[in-house]
């Protein structure tokens, strides 16, 4: 058992963890209930909303922790709120209690996620460095790799490059190749591999269903964003869509060949190719970013989390006396 400042710190961390779990559940519910409506927003708005979802539990946990800290609890201005929710004996912390257990579980899970994600970076970085070494720089950030597999991708976290295979160059026209390179350069300029990694780190705290949907939605949004990055008119949109279909057919042809079967990218299902083409051909007006709704929802989530943490604390303490 410890007292005073350290006890307060550990208690606040416990508050943060509880608030994080509660906020995560509510943010997941909100996301799940509006997932279909996200298609009504433009790609950039959709990306911002997805970031908002994965950041929400962290932001809410921080706000709730601040609320339970002496900064708020010691001031009379927020008396009605402190009456509503408060943390008992914040200056005493028992190591052999559910408080420390929940903290330990959270720290252990975070370490597991961090190690897993760092390992992905480490292994990917080694492979990307090797490909860079064996490739030929066509121009800045565009590397040609000698391989019959028709492929184009962007890799590298802090210093991204796009890789184009000789197999792809041989089987596409100059215009099509330019479209593909521009698409990849858009990923490089947006630092998409790094953002994708960071997004996957934040979404790892959600349940499997939510996590998969968040990841695939972000992947699709990034691809759609890159598709239209250099597009200035409808004709160019159609050219990108045609190239996308042609490349997909080319990749499909190679999948028949057993030698190349496993090398093919299968991260996008037919559905997402369809969505990308439809997005390129679509000229409908999208809804603007729902600033007001987002602020109200976040405020409500903070309030719900504050009261839930208090109620949860009371409920657990009634069941087990620490």
């Amino acid at each position: 058992m410890i007292y005073d400042q350290w006890a307060l710190t550990f208690n606040l961390l416990t508050v943060g963890v509880l608030a994080f779990v509660v906020a995560n559940i509510f943010a997941s519910s909100v996301f799940w209930s509006i997932k279909e409506k996200l298609a009504d927003y433009s790609v950039s708005t959709r990306k911002s909303l997805l970031w908002l979802f994965v950041f929400a539990p962290w932001f809410i946990a921080l706000s709730v922790t601040l609320f339970f800290s002496p900064l708020f609890q010691d001031h009379s201005t927020f008396t009605w709120l402190t009456d509503l929710a408060h943390w008992h004996h914040p200056d005493i912390f028992y190591f052999l209690s559910w408080h420390s257990f929940s903290l330990l579980v959270f720290v252990a899970f975070s370490l597991y996620v961090f190690t897993k994600k760092m390992s992905v970076i480490y292994h990917n970085n080694k492979k990307i460095s090797m490909l860079r070494l064996f490739g030929i720089e066509r121009c800045k950030q565009v590397i040609i790799i000698e391989s019959p597999i028709p492929t184009a991708f962007t890799g590298g976290l802090l210093n991204p490059s796009c890789f184009i295979s000789t197999g792809l160059i041989e089987q596409t026209s100059t215009v099509e190749l330019e479209i593909i390179i521009q698409h990849e350069i858009a990923h490089v300029r947006n630092y998409d591999p790094l953002k994708k990694w960071f997004f996957s780190f934040l979404s790892a705290y959600f349940t499997n269903d939510v996590k998969s949907l968040l990841s695939s939605m972000m992947s699709l949004s990034m691809e759609q964003d890159a598709d239209s990055f250099f597009v200035k008119n409808q004709q160019q949109s159609q050219n990108v869509a045609t190239t996308l279909i042609k490349f997909t057919k080319l990749a499909a042809k190679y999948s028949i060949h057993p030698q190349y079967k496993s090398e093919l990218f299968v991260h996008f299902c037919r559905h997402s190719i369809e969505q990308r083409v439809l997005h390129l051909l679509n000229d409908k007006k999208f809804k603007p970013f729902p600033k007001g709704t987002a602020l109200i929802v976040i405020f409500l989530l903070v309030l719900i989390s504050i009261t839930s943490v208090d109620s949860l604390h009371h409920a657990i303490e009634t069941l087990f006396t620490h």
Binding site: A152, W197, S200, E223, T248, V266, H267, F268, I273
Partner: peptide, 8 residues
Amino acid sequence: VITAFSSI
């Protein structure tokens, strides 16, 4: 951690 033009 990579992004690709297309896949099947």
